[in-house]
Amino acid sequence: MKHDIKTVKKAINGDKSAFEKLLIQEEKMLYYKALSYVRTKEDALDVIQETACKAFLAISQLKNPEYFSTWLFKILIRECYSLLKSRDRIIPYEENELLKKLDREQDEEIESFHLSEALSRLRSSYQTCLILFYYHDLSIKDIAEVMEKPSGTIKTYLRRAKKTLKSELERSYKLNEKTS
């Protein structure tokens, strides 16, 4: 969403009402984005509250007012991730969506049935990386920020995650073949 640069600059200079106005302009996106990660209304509202707090404390450091939205949503996603992490939960995803994107990368088609099982066998950090990258379309840099790891580590996680996922899928196909 394009914001009025003047309002963003006011917010950067500590203007509370300008900041609140900007967040209200983004309210629907904030809510649904949070909901897509944390799934329940209560958690989404908690995440929005934390995001508003952290963003207001940090807005003076925002260098480019035109990137306000991007910056705000990075904070939101980080808050979603930390909430899920504190509850030992993995970022939720829609299987079909993730499948479509993963399929483009795989040689053979993955069946939905096998995917969730194979994914659940991965380390949680690998799962998170895959979901953020393929399902939420986050860049390596953004994932690095959300997970508070260097970009190089995220690249490694992704590479290993794909490799492990592939072997897990092959294993479950074989198992499936044997049982059928």
Binding site: E50, A52, A55, F56
Partner: peptide, 13 residues
């Protein structure tokens, strides 16, 4: 609810 969460967040900050 969303607006009051935003408001609470700012007050918290």
């Amino acid at each position: 609810d969303v607006r009051s969460a935003i408001h609470r967040g700012i007050s918290q900050a």
